[in-house]
């Protein structure tokens, strides 16, 4: 039964990074690793380079980078940092 709910609740993730900075590269690889491990095939991940789209910074209220926005399932959560603290990432994504 849990499986069906998870099937419906696909994780919609957007990761904002700044070019190829150390934190950005680390965040991308850490997040991909976590997603593959815990929500395998049940997520969509968009990676956005804020340098390329500067206006998005104001629109999305971006301050700290890298920033991961989980817009679904609700509630929306924001995670900042290089995603190296796996426990916190899972907590933020609502995966126990």
């Amino acid at each position: 039964m849990d499986d069906t709910i998870q099937e419906d609740e696909r994780y919609v993730l957007r990761l904002f990074v700044t070019g190829a900075s150390v934190n950005s590269v680390r965040a991308i690889s850490n997040l991909k690793h976590i997603c593959e491990t815990y929500v395998h095939d049940n997520y969509s991940l968009e990676i956005i380079d804020v340098y390329q789209e500067k206006t998005i910074a104001e629109k999305e209220q971006i301050i700290a980078l890298p920033l991961l926005i989980k817009s679904f399932p609700l509630p929306e959560r924001r995670l900042i940092g290089d995603m190296s603290d796996t426990n916190r990432v899972l907590k933020g994504l609502g995966i126990s």
Partner: peptide, 9 residues
């Protein structure tokens, strides 16, 4: 709304 998960700037 914010979770800190490591190094950031």
């Amino acid at each position: 709304e914010i979770e800190e998960t490591g190094e950031y700037d």
